[in-house]
Simulated assay, not measured.
Amino acid sequence: MTRPIILDLTPGAQGMATLLAALQVPDHVRPVLVLFSGRATEVEVAQAHARDMLRQYGLDDVGVHAGCPGPLAGGTGHDLPAGQDGLGALHLLQAVRACPADSVSLCCSGPLTTLALALVQAPDIAAHLHGVIVNGGAFYVHGDATAVAEHNIAADPEAASVVLAAGVPVTLVPLDCTARLKADAVWMEQLEPMGRLPASVAGRVHAELAAARNGGARGSGVDVSLRAVAPLLALLSPGLFSGHLAHVDVECRGEFTRGMTVARRMGPPGVQPNALVLERLSVEAVRGVLRDLLLSACK
């Protein structure tokens, strides 16, 4: 069965690699919506690239839109950020409602603002979601936003709290799991056939990945993270990941701990798990799956 999926991506090489990989398995997943959240100029470029990619795969009907550019709450509560028209959330809830109940999976590589806003506006869409797989959290490792918080959760802790409380099946892919998932020199060399087709979508993704590595410290070819692709790969190849059910809370108020994620395996009576927290992945196997998916775009 082909599962409808929604990709909520951040612009850049990793986001484009995620979309290209998703297009290689039409018997398993089919994108029904692609969102990009981030800086306006970067989002515009990513949208144009994504539309061109989808067009070449005969998927002109798939919407490509901008997600919410700012956090859900401007302090407390769930107020719309100034200047935010909520169109990204509207496109999301329309796409979800168009899918049968318990059918659509959402892979989110950035903050959860757009999904949270859609759930606040239309709680009924939760019944249509088969699962939400999120890059988010740092439990036993140093955060990448603060000492205790991972970037995507820290960018909008209130949004993460909304999603975790919505009753939808959530899978968290934290920094603990993806810290070693990187595009190193050996892996990039394996993708060299993509570079032989510079005019193709595969060639363009390869060029963007190479530029991301060469744009590192002093252009020295620094390994770049591939964690943006982890939610899609966890959906396609769940056997390469392992984790545990937990009740996850997000710290929204602490002066020094805002955005911190806390997982309780054994909570007090009445506290039920609200997420599957992935602890480990097989780095070489996961990179091998991604490599093979990207190379299949050359055929």
Rank of each mutant, 00 (worst) to 15 (best):
T2A: 01
I6A: 03
G12N: 02
A13G: 13
Q14V: 15
A22T: 00
L23P: 08
Q24Y: 14
V25N: 12
P26C: 07
H28Y: 04
R30Y: 00
R30D: 00
P31M: 14
L35W: 02
H49Y: 15
H49D: 13
A50K: 01
D52A: 10
R55G: 03
D60I: 03
G63R: 09
G63N: 14
H65G: 03
H65R: 14
G67M: 08
C68P: 05
P69R: 00
G70L: 05
A73N: 12
G74Q: 09
G77A: 10
A82M: 12
G88N: 00
L92E: 01
L92A: 06
Q94G: 09
A95E: 06
A95N: 09
V96R: 01
A98K: 08
C99G: 14
C99W: 05
P100L: 06
C108Y: 02
P111R: 05
L112C: 10
L112P: 01
L115Q: 03
L115M: 12
A118D: 08
A122Y: 03
P123K: 10
A127D: 05
L129G: 04
Y140T: 13
H142E: 09
D144W: 01
A147E: 06
A149R: 09
H151P: 06
P157F: 02
P157I: 02
E158F: 05
A159Q: 04
A160Y: 10
A160S: 15
S161W: 01
L164N: 06
L164H: 02
L164A: 06
G167Q: 02
T171Q: 13
C177G: 10
V186E: 14
Q190P: 00
L191W: 07
L191F: 11
E192K: 14
R196W: 11
P198H: 09
A199M: 12
A199G: 09
A202H: 02
L209H: 06
L209T: 05
L209F: 03
A211G: 10
A211Y: 12
A212P: 12
R213A: 07
N214C: 14
S220L: 15
L226W: 14
A230M: 08
L232D: 04
A234P: 09
A234N: 15
S242H: 11
H244T: 07
A246Q: 07
H247G: 04
H247E: 07
R253A: 04
E255A: 11
G259K: 12
M260A: 15
V262R: 13
M266F: 11
G267F: 01
P269S: 14
V271P: 02
P273H: 09
P273K: 12
S282V: 01
R287I: 01
G288F: 13
S296W: 06
